[in-house]
Amino acid sequence: MNDSNPERKPMGDEGDVTCLLRQWQEEGRAVFDRLWPAVADDLKHISLKLLSEFVAGAGPAATMSATDLLHEAFPKLYHYRIGREFQNRAQFFALAKSIMLHILLNYRRKKFRAQGHLAADVELADIADGEALSLDSIMTLLEGLRKLATIAPRQSRIIHMRFYQDMSFKGIMAEMGMSRSSVYLDLKGGLLFLKHYLQQNEHAGNASRSLEA
């Protein structure tokens, strides 16, 4: 079946971002220092806000969609501040989606301690404490994704569909010809791999970076 051969499909989005991030690193700290806070911190701020609204509002959407994030972040960032640094929207979107995935992987909803909507504040406080999102973290995530692609092409492709192309479960099921539970299982496996990969590799990176700061 063609579907089982995902390498044929270019994994363009995040590859593009890797190049961009590399370029930033090579160009020296100046570009990075200027752009990174704008991209990472703003997106982080916005996604945390969205997450908290999602939790509090119990809206109809079952999962956070990176598109929601972009609708909010895009005009603010792209038009007014950093637009010129990206070759195209897709590049910016892919970076934003990587950041979103990273945040989601590190986001953990606590059990409700209070009734009703008040709970959201408690949770927001829990996650807002986290340290600033570093460029290395995103690079690590992208490496993890690449590694996953070689080890488990199908799962990698499904993760890509879900988190980079914002496809719904139904869409993925149709595209892959798989049942809902298999798609779910594949996503779960892929995410476990990524989270584990981040845990293994991120701490080392952070330790070396903290000396620079």
């Binding site: 997450l51 079952a62 999962t63 956070m64 989601l104 992987l105 986001y107 953990r108 909803r109 879900r162 479960f169 779910y184 996503l187 779960k188 995410l191 476990l192 989270k195």
Partner: peptide, 8 residues
């Protein structure tokens, strides 16, 4: 990981 948040 919070899968109900990540995947619904």
């Amino acid at each position: 990981l919070d899968f109900s948040m990540l995947l619904g």
